[in-house]
Design a protein around this nucleic acid. Structure first.
Length: 710
RNA sequence: GGGCGGUUAGCUCAGUUGGCUAGAGCGUCGCAUUGACAUUGCGGAGGUCACAGGUUCAAGUCCUGUACCGCCCACCA
């Protein structure tokens, strides 16, 4: 057998992956008598191709998966894809726009159909890419969040929560994205610092500061701090004010939310268009007067300003105020944080609208307890604090979105006013027996369905064999940036739906950054395309570079040099094997017991065996404690510097001595095989390829299912 | 306003329950080498482990404080 001088991943990887997939060892069975180990893959969004962040999670999860499989557990790593509501809708709409088409022209049904097709195509591409990354997952169980069975489970949960009083419909102030035309949860809103003029406007005898004079038509009060002596005499009274639309009367209320230090200590209260004002309004029973519509334009309550967009109206109104002598002064250097849409960066318009909400506090309590009781543990542990903080201050969760792509809310309205919540469309109204039922036009927040992912993938609410055997799962591995979006929701919904915390450990990895610690982004031009890198240096090199010397849960620093360094390592393993195979016995038995006793061992023999033992111990300990970066470093150092540089060099003389030849050869094969096993979770392709070439007795079909060294 | 993380070699980072002369990759300097591998080997230079105290036989590691950097959460108009 001729072996090439250098390791050539391109010729090896696809062939090896096929070997694994055809072997059937990637499939898990709930009938197994072994101990289960299960990771649910965080389903990538089905709206694009994989990036380097995906390569991180694949590497980490595959390391755990392969390690546990070799340790003899029944391992299931379950893949899938997420429909990613708003994100996919935005992506597909952009695609349509390029073709001169639009969502509205297509209509709801056709748009859904096309987006579904688009997502399925992406899912297929992604699955090919996951294979290229070496992901040893069970493809026979691949799922999609909009699969009919999964959707049914999601509706089941909705119905159950509605019955339990955990879901309600209500008119609330929500964050509205005028571009996406939908409500957003507070997590989908991000903040950006911006400089805006701060206007000091005369309100009758008072002066107040605001950045949004255009909302003044919605003012239903003016508020001051209860302890503010300057304004005490006005509290509870109506004051007459001059506005751009004429004279009006407005009530003065005292509320502790007002900061007497800011501006003049007087604030206008616009309950319909500001979250704080909404709350002040609730406390003082103020009228809610909506003056801005869902299109982001002023409505007819704004008189002559009706139809103007918020920002242009602001300028014009400010000018008019000045003309009328109502503007006391303008501070042009005022910096504040404005809310923008996480997806499209459009400025958020707080609006009152009817939405569906989850009473989150009730779900949060047991979710907090599960972590306190160590039913779930976080790695790194400090994320526990963040989790507690968020869970203890949780607010009701707005779960309705005014988009078309996703699970349509399973609620039907009858002309008679009856509301029916069910998994499927009711045949007729249970109250009036009428047949004219209209389904709620909204869809559910993506995270509502992905929050149930760890059990809906197993066919829950049916008590399937899979569910009983694999749930609760072992590890949830994902990025810390979706701790609240996803992990917290999975814990809450998991406990609520199944009575059990959905996983034992949460491992949170960091962000991928370049060597200047910059976050990777297309606009910065510093992205590393995992598949491009793979064609250049091989999957193993990329995987090893992603974990090598990275502290658990810390940001992953990656650079091309680092990947090249690991390609060299792949080649080193390859060539060490080539050397060992130069002295090829017919078939070698690598049972350690057959290696000579102390008496016939040289100093070098003893040393390498001892260091190997130490390496095995420390790698095991590291892997048990999720210290993958450390394990990778230990293995790298052992293989290169202890085995290759020292022992293999020494073996050259030992092999030419008849007395030591046989033992040396056995040790070479033994250490090589053990190293391959230990390295396999990190570098699956090169190790498997070499394993296939070794002349071993008792060889298994693949290294993937070899026995892990303990 | 709260909270979290970081500060170790020129650069990027490891360093487990405190325990050998503090490590790796890349870079750098010198030497070697046509039979495993130049995607190499050997050797060297390079560190007051941010700073100041404290606990200890022993501190990069634990405690307290300070400085700087980064991040998250929060309703300041």
């Amino acid at each position: 057998m001729k072996i090439s001088k250098t390791y050539n991943p391109k010729q090896v990887e696809d062939k090896i992956y096929q070997l694994w997939e055809k072997s059937g060892f990637l499939k898990a069975s709930p009938k197994s008598k072994k101990q289960p180990f299960c990771i649910i893959m965080p389903p990538p969004n089905a709206n694009g191709i994989l990036h380097i962040g995906h390569a991180v999670f694949v590497t980490l999860e595959d390391i755990m998966t392969r390690y546990q499989r070799m340790k003899g557990k029944e391992v299931l790593w379950l893949p899938g894809a997420d429909h990613a509501g708003i994100m996919t809708q935005v992506t597909y709409e952009k695609k349509l726009a390029k073709q001169g088409k639009s969502r509205l022209k297509l209509g709801r049904e056709e748009f859904y159909k096309q987006t579904y097709k688009f997502s399925m195509e992406n899912k297929k591409v992604m699955e090919t890419q996951l294979r290229k990354l070496g992901a040893s997952c069970d493809w026979s169980r691949s799922k999609f969040t909009l699969d009919p069975k999964i959707s049914k489970a999601v509706f089941y949960t909705f119905k159950k929560m509605y019955k339990d009083g955990l879901i309600y419909r209500g008119k609330r102030i929500i964050s509205w994205c005028p571009r996406c035309q939908t409500a957003l949860s507070n997590l989908e809103v991000i903040y950006q610092e911006k400089k805006d003029p701060l206007y000091y406007i005369k309100y009758g005898p008072l002066t107040l500061a605001t950045v949004r004079p255009e909302t003044k038509f919605g003012d239903t009060a003016v508020a001051v701090h209860p302890a503010d002596k300057r304004y005490k005499k006005y509290v509870g009274k109506e004051i007459e004010i001059q506005t751009v639309l004429g004279k009006a009367e407005v009530k003065v209320v005292a509320d502790k939310a007002v900061d007497p230090e800011f501006g003049t200590g007087v604030v206008k209260v616009t309950p319909a268009h500001d979250p704080n004002d909404f709350e002040i309004g609730q406390r003082h029973n103020l009228e809610i007067r909506q003056v801005i519509g869902f299109d982001g334009k002023l409505n007819k309550k704004a008189g002559k300003y009706a139809g103007m967009k918020v920002r242009e109206a602001r300028k014009i109104i400010a000018k008019d105020l000045e003309k009328m002598g109502l503007m006391e002064k303008i501070d042009f250097n005022y910096k504040h944080r404005i809310a923008i849409c996480e997806r499209c960066k459009t400025i958020i318009e707080p609006l009152i609208s009817e939405q569906w909400f989850i009473r989150a506090k009730k779900l949060a309590a047991p979710a907090i307890k599960a972590v306190e009781d160590k039913k779930i543990e976080f790695i790194p542990t400090h994320y526990k604090k963040l989790y507690y903080h968020w869970m203890k201050n949780i607010r009701d969760w707005c779960i309705s979105r005014q988009i078309w792509w996703g699970h349509r809310i399973p609620v039907w309205y009858c002309e008679c006013g009856e509301i029916t919540v069910d998994i499927e469309k009711p045949k007729s109204c249970p109250k009036c027996k009428g047949k004219k039922l209209k389904q709620d036009p909204d869809t559910l927040d993506t995270w509502f369905s992905s929050g149930q992912w760890p059990f809906t993938v197993f066919g829950w609410p049916r008590q399937t064999k899979d569910f009983q055997y694999f749930y609760p799962t072992s590890v949830m591995e994902t990025g810390w940036d979706i701790l609240f979006f996803w992990v917290a929701r999975m814990i809450m919904l998991g406990i609520y739906c199944t009575g059990k915390a959905p996983f034992r450990y949460v491992y949170l990895h960091g962000l991928v950054r370049d060597k200047d610690r910059q976050k990777m982004s297309k606009s910065k031009g510093n992205v590393i395309d995992p598949l491009g890198v793979i064609t250049l240096y091989g999957t193993d090199a990329l995987r090893m570079a992603l974990v090598f010397g990275t502290g658990s849960g810390k940001d992953t620093i990656i650079s091309e040099e680092k990947i090249i360094g690991q390609r060299k390592f792949s080649n080193k393993i390859w060539n060490a094997t080539r050397f060992i195979l130069m002295n090829k016995p017919p078939l070698i038995n690598t049972d350690k017991k057959l290696i000579g006793t102390d008496k016939n061992l040289t100093g070098a023999d003893k040393k390498i065996l001892k260091v190997l033992e130490k390496t095995i111990k420390s790698v095991n300990k590291d892997l048990e404690n999720f210290r993958f970066g450390q394990a990778a470093q230990t293995l790298y150092h052992f293989f290169w510097h202890d085995f290759c540089d020292k022992y293999i060099e020494k073996s050259k003389s030992q092999m030419s001595n008849v007395k030591t030849k046989e033992n040396t050869q056995k040790i070479l094969y033994y250490v090589l095989l053990t190293s391959l096993k230990l390295l396999h979770p990190f570098m699956p392709f090169v190790t498997e390829e070499i394993y296939q070439k070794l002349p071993l007795k008792n060889k298994k079909k693949c290294l993937m299912i070899e026995t892990w060294p303990n």
